[in-house]
Amino acid sequence: MSIVFSFMLGFFAPIYGGIFYGIDRVLKAKMQRRKGPPVLQPFYDMLKLFSKTKFIVNAPHTIWMIFYFLSLWAVVFMIFFGGNLLYIIFGHLLATVFFIISGYSVNSIFSQLGSNRKLLSVVAYEPILIVNAICIYLVFGTFEISEILAAPNNFNSLVFTFLSLLFVVPTVLKLSPFDASKAHQEIVGGIEVEFGGVFYELVYAAKFLEMIFVYSFIFILASNDYIFGTFLVVFSFFAVALVDNSTARIKIDSLLKALYMYGFGLGIVSIFWILLCCI
């Protein structure tokens, strides 16, 4: 039963992930006192993109991107099947590298700039994710998500991990102020620029998967207290949207500095906090 359920959750992730994205857009619109698009807007976009003409720049470019989507999907499956946190992080790294290579394999300056910046932002957030995974291990004694979700709630020890992860969320999702790798007005979406039609839909759906990936990290901090976990996710969802609306983009080198100083710093504080104060 639970296997079927996990499978369903994973399989339909690109679908219901769209609802989260729709809610996100409405939330941001409401913050700006706009009405905003309907919640189902991502699905309208999806269906529209299906009906457009299929354009590609070159075959490898498209293939790398398709495998980015597939690997990311596999990672989401691993999350729902309660896999190992480290494998999930590194699987996500692999997927991201596919995407970066996709960006490099066209002759477009925006795409290449986007890839360069994405690579740097990976260098910025990857260590934070690993350090936070180690923090989670220190508290629960396991990397397996299924075991973490069964363990008793111990959020007090993970406060700093939570704060540190708040820096990772906008970087992975490419939201302000850490959206230098996407930079819609500056480099026209970075790696996304050369995709059109149904292929852009894959990139678009990958955003939902990224959302599920990064918020699941926050969800598991609350371990078996699912209501509190949901609260954490909603809180960080709200906080990230607020920050996205109210801050300007920072340059890629400032991003690196900020993530290493605050995100990584908080990760280290978290290890000390867990080892010295909580155990």
Partner: peptide, 21 residues
């Protein structure tokens, strides 16, 4: 802008021809 809010019709200013209608 918030006053007219074209986004409520689903409009997105993409700045990229490949994703535009």
């Amino acid at each position: 802008s918030p006053r007219y809010d074209l986004e409520r019709l689903g409009v997105l200013n993409t700045g990229n021809p490949k994703q535009a209608d």
